[in-house]
């Protein structure tokens, strides 16, 4: 056997591809706020970030991130769904794929591109043609029965984020119960708790992303 002969059989040798990470979840669950927390944590670890935002008929989330001062505005691309948000992350993700390709071409140093879905319902899921990994964000304000409803977003996401744990006690939501039932219905796949106001759980979330999909530790 000749090692060189075998290695020349490679089918592709194109440029580095940034990891693509989907962020889905209901309206108001805190997806954009979570990205605003993730960016500085990732940047502090030397990880290069860009974001594709999806809104129904506006560029609201993109403008918010572009004006945040957390990220260069040209690293944020808006995509308008114009219809049900899940159609452009699952059934036909071509608009989002094109946006991510554009970011990757413009910024070849990128390590990760977040693709934030427009707010949707518990049935929302990402196509793996679009992302390498996806998280689903729910919040305690929506009630502590959400995991028991076993929506595909809850069950099938690579990572479930239970956000706004700070407001749980004020709306009668048992955060410990949410975590316990989420772990059960997800068959012990990762579930993390976050509070974006106090930056609780953000480090652990970045650690999880590095472990599962960014691989900047190896």
């Amino acid at each position: 056997m000749n090692d060189k002969d075998l290695r020349t059989q490679t089918t592709s040798g194109s440029q580095k591809s940034a990891a693509r990470v989907g962020i889905g979840g209901p309206v108001g669950s805190g997806k954009t706020a979570l990205i605003e927390c993730l960016i500085p944590d990732l940047v502090s670890r030397g990880i290069e970030v860009a974001v594709v935002t999806n809104d129904l008929v506006t560029k609201e989330d993109a403008k918010r991130l572009q004006n945040s001062g957390l990220i260069s505005p040209d690293r944020v691309l808006p995509v308008e769904a114009g219809a049900c948000p899940h159609t452009i992350i699952r059934e036909d993700p071509s608009l989002n794929i094109a946006a991510a390709d554009n970011l990757n071409a413009s910024f070849p140093e990128l390590d990760v591109i977040f693709i934030e879905s427009g707010g949707d319902n518990l049935a929302s899921t990402f196509s793996l043609d679009l992302v390498d990994y996806w998280m689903f964000v729910i919040d305690t304000g929506a009630g502590d029965d959400i995991p028991r409803k076993k929506g595909p977003g809850i069950i099938r996401s690579d990572l479930l984020v239970v956000n706004k744990i700070d407001i749980g006690p004020y709306v009668g939501a048992n955060v410990d119960l949410i975590k316990q039932e989420a772990v059960e219905v997800r068959n012990h796949r990762p579930t993390l708790l976050t509070d974006c106001k106090r930056k609780i759980g953000i480090d652990a979330l970045v650690d999880q992303l590095i472990q599962d999909v960014l691989f900047t530790d190896v």
Binding site: M1, N2, D5, L6, R7, Q9, T10, T11, S12, G13
Partner: peptide, 13 residues
Amino acid sequence: SILGYAADEPFDS
């Protein structure tokens, strides 16, 4: 990267 496929030469041999 995917270098090739087990059923194809020279990988099979």
